[in-house]
Design a protein around this nucleic acid. Sequence first.
DNA 1: AATGAATGAGCATTCATTCAT
DNA 2: CATGAATGAATGCTCATTCAT
Lengths: 224, 224, 224, 224
Amino acid sequence: MKRVIAAHAHAVEDKAARRTAILQAADVSFAAGPGHLPTAAVIASATGLAKGTVYLYFQTKEEIFAALLLQKWSTVMKESQALLQTTKGTRAAKVSAFLAGLVAHLENHPELLRLDALGYSVLEKNMSHAVLVTHKAEFMMRLEKTGSVIDSALRLTEGRGIQLFMRTYALTRGLWQSYQHTEETVSAGVIISQRLVANPFGAELRDALTEYWRGALSVCADRR
Amino acid sequence: MKRVIAAHAHAVEDKAARRTAILQAADVSFAAGPGHLPTAAVIASATGLAKGTVYLYFQTKEEIFAALLLQKWSTVMKESQALLQTTKGTRAAKVSAFLAGLVAHLENHPELLRLDALGYSVLEKNMSHAVLVTHKAEFMMRLEKTGSVIDSALRLTEGRGIQLFMRTYALTRGLWQSYQHTEETVSAGVIISQRLVANPFGAELRDALTEYWRGALSVCADRR
Amino acid sequence: MKRVIAAHAHAVEDKAARRTAILQAADVSFAAGPGHLPTAAVIASATGLAKGTVYLYFQTKEEIFAALLLQKWSTVMKESQALLQTTKGTRAAKVSAFLAGLVAHLENHPELLRLDALGYSVLEKNMSHAVLVTHKAEFMMRLEKTGSVIDSALRLTEGRGIQLFMRTYALTRGLWQSYQHTEETVSAGVIISQRLVANPFGAELRDALTEYWRGALSVCADRR
Amino acid sequence: MKRVIAAHAHAVEDKAARRTAILQAADVSFAAGPGHLPTAAVIASATGLAKGTVYLYFQTKEEIFAALLLQKWSTVMKESQALLQTTKGTRAAKVSAFLAGLVAHLENHPELLRLDALGYSVLEKNMSHAVLVTHKAEFMMRLEKTGSVIDSALRLTEGRGIQLFMRTYALTRGLWQSYQHTEETVSAGVIISQRLVANPFGAELRDALTEYWRGALSVCADRR
DNA sequence: AATGAATGAGCATTCATTCAT
DNA sequence: CATGAATGAATGCTCATTCAT
């Protein structure tokens, strides 16, 4: 039986629902806002709760966004795993499907990399150790799962998959940040190399990732 | 003739020296501190100047660090250019020397990537438009210079070099951020994949960059 | 039933009481200090609250004093209205009672004109538009009420009362400012005309206002 | 022989000229700006001097404006004296000419009352005692001169003139401040009594002053 | 559990004035 | 005398978090 969230969330399922509601409100608030984290007051009122209530579900504001980010990357990883396991054909075909899926997801969820960019410098500076450990352990678990799916889908040495995924993640995150910088440079009126602005971010990312994976998986003959 | 900077820096070279002194003090203060920017008071006293004096040379605190970051990346790019132009031999040898030099530089200047990680989210939020444009234009100019050196050293199509450098930069920056995350995860007591912690950052970065450049420059034969 | 204000003012009447407490503390702090507004920290500690709490009740420091000034003038106007409506007898008797009451009130509340002197140049420079409008509208409402009481008490043409009151207010405010100047001149050791210092401010004001009202209400025969 | 002000003002007349230049620049800067005093830097550059140089001629910034205000009121008083001494006819004619001249002057020099409004609360708070005394003594001297001209022109008891002038000044200053308030109230969108906004400031002032002088000089028959 | 009132640490920047050159 | 570089005091306000109700 579906139930509307009660005024007081006593049942376990109500509490989980309230937590989810806060996460969603935080997500929406962040996506709508400028670069930085919305204030606790904004999140609370977007959720329809009082400020104090939010702190019954999360210890700090940053914890909310850390949880949100973990959730979002988990989704990405699950999708990637599914694509790798579903796609039939050559290794190249699988990689291609994986990358295309990743790029498409990021294009459809532009707030993901925006939030991710805050990660190291902002989110972790204000979380209790215990929660931080929990998050990191969870993230690592999913990462290793993803890595092992890559290993088996592409028939790689054990442990190679997680490494590839980490580097894919790194290139993605780094490229997004550089791309923001580039876009701002352009909008500031500086004339820059055509090569850097010809492509939208998605195409740029696909190209870069494709090159990386080609290098990572290939026995290569230098073109000259 | 050596000259001590006078109590009042009237001469142009004294003013430049004072500006440099502030930059160095800011650098040291940032390197010594935790993640965030040192306060204006700290920078001033580290330079041996009064707070107000700092604001004669920079409009905002963030401008100091933006200038510092620009300076640091400029140095990196100049070194890279020199290596590419100096190294003799095959294209692979040149790339190898370039990457080795880059990695070594970053290992010797660990504060560079720490500061860089603040870049987008922190530094640009409080700079006058004019200065921002100047910085970006300067950065872009150096980037294009570097790109064209890559083009000619490796005999690439024009414009390819800047793209390669941007992606190198992106992978570097992204990997560093992920690596911080990983290190913290380990130190938090979470057990993680051996593959991710076997290498120090420098080695990890070299591997990843090597793979990327291999993919970017090669005609590849898929290993299977 | 008397109630002590709780540590947290949840009830509406408690909130009003806290607001009033802040106003009073601000009043006392201003009266005790030199010419300029006390700092936010001073007001807060005089109220026995934390700085942040003060900002739950007022948006800016200046708003506090604007509210205080409005309150003080409102009181003056109410008293004046009462005097005009209560006093029996000739028009001259009513005017005389009104002026005597006004002068007495100002003598008993010396901080009123001190605060008023800051009005235009200081208070309004830092208030949100909305609050400013509210204050001005409230002031104007009371002013018109006062004007209409004057109209009917003295049987004047409609609209004449508000004009008379405004000019009374203007002469009062201007004379106080000049008087401060004069007092300081004397205390600086400058010898000045006996006529300017013979009277204390109250007497001076009464004389001046009496002359003004005589001129405003009379059919006059030039003495020569 | 006229001479352009030299780079170094050694001669006494050059120094006086430089002082005058600063006063004029301050006047222009204040008139052009918003309500508050222009910064020392602005005054200096408007004069074409360096900041430090300004402080060779005035001890504090406020002293500049105090001197300016004194100069301006002196001019007003001289004009008033001239009008009173020149105008022929009845006492009423003389008063009328005097008031008309005063109002006209103020209408032509709108910055005068703007600057005057800062007087007590701003200018005097930062002047050395010695200079303050000098200014006040000078002002008082001119005031007494004006008063005695009024006395003789209107054949009043000695000392009455200075009192009348002071009250005229007070009503003027107070009315201007109230008028500013009223104008802002209107521009804020508050609907106010027609009587208060029907007249421009000059007409309002003339009416009020006329009423005051009528009361001050007349033997009056209450209209009822 | 929910509320929302109370807390208070934290900090860049301006600008009048001084003083070395 | 003129300069303009150096000084440093001075302070309102936000907002994450706590805790009385």
